[in-house]
C-alpha cells in the first residue's frame, strides 16, 4: 500500500511527495468542496476521502501533473453523487437554508453568505460548472474535461446555473449574467 515504506527508501520519498502535495493543495480543495456542497464539515469529508483515495494509489500515479484534475473530478463526482442519492435527501443537511434571507445586505460577510446560500439551491451539476469556472478559473474545454461532458453542455449549464443562482438570490446580486 501506498503508505508503507519500501526497503529501498522509495516509500519514504513517495510519502514526502504526497505530504507536500497535501500541504499545498488541501486548503484550496477545501474551498472548492465548500462551494460545491455549502457546508464546511461535509467539504472536509469529501476532501479527506479524495486524499485518502489518492494516497492509496500515490505510488502508481505516473502523471503527477494530472493530480489537480483528478482531485477536482473526484470531488465533483462525490458531491454530485451524494446529492442525487435518495438517502442524501432523507438526511438533508441539519443546517436550515436560511442564508437566502439576507438579500440586500451590502457587507462582505452577508454577500458571502448570500452567494453560498444561493449556490446551494442551484442543481448540483450546474453548481459544479459554476464553481469550476468561476472559482477554479477553468475555461470551457477544461471544465468539460473535468465533468466528462461536452463543451456545449458546459455552456448551457453555465447559463442555466447562473439563471438559477440569479433566481435564488433575487435582488441581492442582480448583476449576475449568463456567461458562456
Amino acid at each position: 500500500m501506498g503508505g508503507e515504506p519500501d526497503g529501498d527508501g522509495s516509500g519514504d520519498v513517495s510519502e514526502i511527495s504526497f505530504e507536500e502535495f497535501f500541504r499545498t493543495r488541501r486548503d484550496a480543495l477545501r474551498r472548492t468542496a465548500y462551494l460545491l456542497c455549502g457546508d464546511w464539515h461535509r467539504a472536509d469529508d469529501h476532501v479527506q476521502a479524495a486524499f485518502v483515495a489518492l494516497h492509496r494509489h500515490w505510488r502508481r500515479i505516473r502523471d503527477k501533473a494530472a493530480l489537480d484534475a483528478w482531485m477536482r473530478r473526484t470531488l465533483v463526482r462525490a458531491v454530485v453523487d451524494e446529492s442525487r442519492r435518495p438517502w442524501r435527501r432523507e438526511r438533508a443537511t441539519a443546517e436550515p437554508d436560511d442564508r437566502r434571507a439576507v438579500p440586500g445586505a451590502a457587507d462582505a460577510v452577508a454577500t458571502r453568505h448570500v452567494l453560498v446560500g444561493g449556490l446551494r439551491s442551484v442543481p448540483p451539476r450546474q453548481r459544479a460548472v459554476l464553481v469550476l469556472r468561476f472559482l477554479e478559473g477553468l475555461d470551457v474545454p477544461a471544465t468539460a474535461a473535468a465533468l466528462s461532458c461536452s463543451e456545449g453542455t458546459v455552456k448551457s449549464q453555465t447559463a442555466a446555473g447562473l439563471a438559477a443562482l440569479r433566481t435564488a438570490l433575487g435582488d441581492a446580486l442582480d448583476d449576475l449574467r449568463p456567461a458562456g
Partner: peptide
C-alpha cells in the same frame, strides 16, 4: 463573478480543517 466566488470561498469564519496529513 470570479471575485464573488473567491470571496465566498475565503470565509474567514471557516472552521479549521478537520483532518491533517496523518489522518489521511
Amino acid at each position: 463573478l470570479a471575485a464573488l466566488f473567491r470571496d465566498a470561498a475565503s470565509d474567514p469564519d471557516a472552521p479549521p480543517p478537520a483532518f491533517g496529513h496523518d489522518d489521511v
